[in-house]
Amino acid sequence: MLVGIPLEQSNSAIKPKECATEMSEYIVTVAEKRCKKSFARVFGYFAPRLRSYALKQMGNEALAMELVQDTMSNVWQKAHLFNAEKGSPSTWIFTIARNIRFDMLRKLQNRKEDVCSDDLWPVLCEQTPDANETSLDEQITLEQIGFLFEALPVKQKAVIEAIYIDGKSQQEVADELSIPLGTVKSRTRLALQRLKGMLNSHDQVSS
């Protein structure tokens, strides 16, 4: 099964910080394309390092390898949760390993009711409660925008629809409607100003 997935360790002397950009790109590629080759790069770099950490923490080769396997499985399966803006790949992977170690140690002591890592560090939650609250806010705002959008003048609505819903460029819209690019720009600006104004007054009424 491993044909074509070389386990690379050539970049082994490089510090985590020095290859953060490269590793970020690999993780994003794993998330988007399930690319095994990219994953093999990430694995080749981090697995031996994780093993060294795990061995110090667990003091036992079998448990250490279990920790490495669980950590890297999460990286493979949940690569879409990595966010380079929030931190480097090494920080993300370390927090996954730390959480697994935390839960493993409590499980070994048979402390089922004990606090679990998710309670303390929601690293791998699809949605943290707080994120959930924000997305609810956004939902309301989207609904409101949909409603206010209908109230825009026809010409402005056409431009906004083409750009923000169909994802066209301003030039494409200009060509399509046979109007100057400057007009597209000014209609967009006016429409956005108008939406913003309507949202503000909407907020004032509802609060």
């Binding site: 491993l2 360790q9 694995f43 080749g44 031996p48 060294s52 396997q69």
Partner: peptide
């Protein structure tokens, strides 16, 4: 820091994860 041994075991692990 890390220790470079264990590569055959790592290869098996990599293949099972992917």
């Amino acid at each position: 820091s890390f220790d470079a041994r264990q590569s055959s075991e790592f290869e098996r692990m990599l293949s099972s994860i992917t």
